[in-house]
Every structure is written in C-alpha cells, then in structure tokens.
Simulated scan of single mutants.
Amino acid sequence: MPAPIELLKTTPEQADLIRNLYQFYAYEGSDLEQEDVDVQGRFYIHEPHLQRYWQSPGWGAYLVLVDDFIAGFVLIERSELPGIDALELADLFILKRFRRQGVGSAVAGQFLGDGNHHWLLRCHGGDAPAVAFCQALLANLPRAVEEIALGDEPQLRNFMVGGTRH
C-alpha cells in the first residue's frame, strides 16, 4: 500500500523552509542552468520573487508530505507571459528518497488535473529525465494537452493543459 501523500499550502512563516529546500532543487539543476553558489556557498534566490508565493493571487508554495515526512515542494504561479491565461506548475522538487515511487506524478497530477484552471507546464529540453517525466505525466492526464512554442526561453518545452480530452 503506497504511503499517503499530502499537499500542505505554506504560509509566509514557512518561507525559510521553502528557501532551504530550494537549495537542493537549485543544486540539481545547476549544471543545466550554469548556476554557481555565492560566497556563502548558497544558490541565489530572488527574495522579492520568493515572497510573491504568499502575496500574489494565483501563486502558492506547497510542501509535499509523504507519511508526514517532508518529501519536497511545489511552486505555483499565475503565468505572466503574453497571451497565456493559465496557472504554471513552476517548480516541482521531490527529494531523492521519495523518487521513483509515483510521488511527483501524483502531486503534479493533482494540480494539472484540476479542471477549474488551464495550466502551463514547462520542462528543460536538455534534461532527459525531466522531459520523460513530463511526457509520461501528460500522456496520462484526462485533459487535453498541447505542446506550444514560446519565445522567452528557447531551451524550455512548453505544454498547455486544459479542456477535456475526448
């Protein structure tokens, strides 16, 4: 029997927790993003952007819990790209201990399966595991999915999720 997965919407008081977990996320993508640590040995986090998860409508930071243990986080944003009226599954991070158990798929599916919203899902085209994850996830959604071209970040693959698949 799989362990129970819970999404917990965080509050501004949990910003340090999200900030700490984000360091692991940034580390894992640092080779693709060509990011370096600062003189304190930490990856850069744009604080005004981070605060928007608790201040801006349509934005949210969620902890992923498995059996009451922190397993990762999800960051949701309202897309600000021209012509895109959708929520964006901006960042999904699952700690290695909880990977390959369906946790990431279950969490992403909860958001993307929400028929009340259109969603934008973007993944780095050079990250083969992320692309495979996105493709498998999207293939199993009960909603229409369309790959779209966006010119802002050419290394990203972009998928719009919305409507009902017939």
Rank of each mutant, 00 (worst) to 15 (best):
Ala149Gly: 12
Val131Gln: 02
Asp67Lys: 00
Ala128Ser: 08
Ser79Leu: 09
Tyr27His: 11
Arg99Thr: 00
His118Asp: 14
Leu156Gln: 11
Glu33His: 07
Ile94Phe: 00
Gln135Arg: 12
Lys9Val: 15
Gly72Ala: 04
Pro4Met: 04
Ala144Met: 03
Glu147Cys: 12
Leu87Lys: 12
Ile70Phe: 01
Asp68Val: 10
Phe133Leu: 07
Ile94Val: 15
Pro2Glu: 01
Arg42Trp: 02
Glu28His: 10
Pro48Thr: 03
Ala132Trp: 01
Phe73Trp: 08
Asp16Leu: 15
Ile94Cys: 00
Val37His: 01
Lys96Glu: 06
Cys134Ile: 04
Gly104Pro: 07
Ile70Pro: 10
Phe98Trp: 05
His46Tyr: 15
Ala90Ser: 13
Ile84Phe: 06
Leu63Val: 01
Pro129Ala: 02
Leu75Gly: 03
Gly126His: 12
Tyr62Glu: 05
Arg100Gly: 00
Asp36Gln: 04
Val37Glu: 05
Ala71Trp: 05
Leu95Ile: 02
Cys134Trp: 03
Asp152Glu: 15
Thr11Val: 13
Phe93Cys: 08
Arg100Phe: 01
Glu47Lys: 14
Arg97Tyr: 01
Pro2Ile: 00
Gly115Val: 13
Val74Tyr: 08
Ala136Met: 01
Ala149Ser: 14
Ser56Val: 09
Glu146Met: 13
Val74Cys: 10
Gln135Cys: 04
Ala90Gly: 02
Thr10Phe: 07
Asp38Gln: 07
Leu156Asn: 09
Asn20Cys: 09
Ala130Trp: 11
Leu50Cys: 09
Arg122Lys: 15
Pro12Glu: 15
Gln51Met: 12
Val37Thr: 14
Trp119Met: 09
Ala144His: 03
Leu7Trp: 05
Pro2Ala: 00
Gly162Val: 13
Gln101Arg: 01
Arg42Ser: 13
Val131Ala: 01
Gly102Leu: 00
Ser30Pro: 05
Leu8Gly: 08
Gly60Gln: 04
Ala130Glu: 11
Glu147Pro: 11
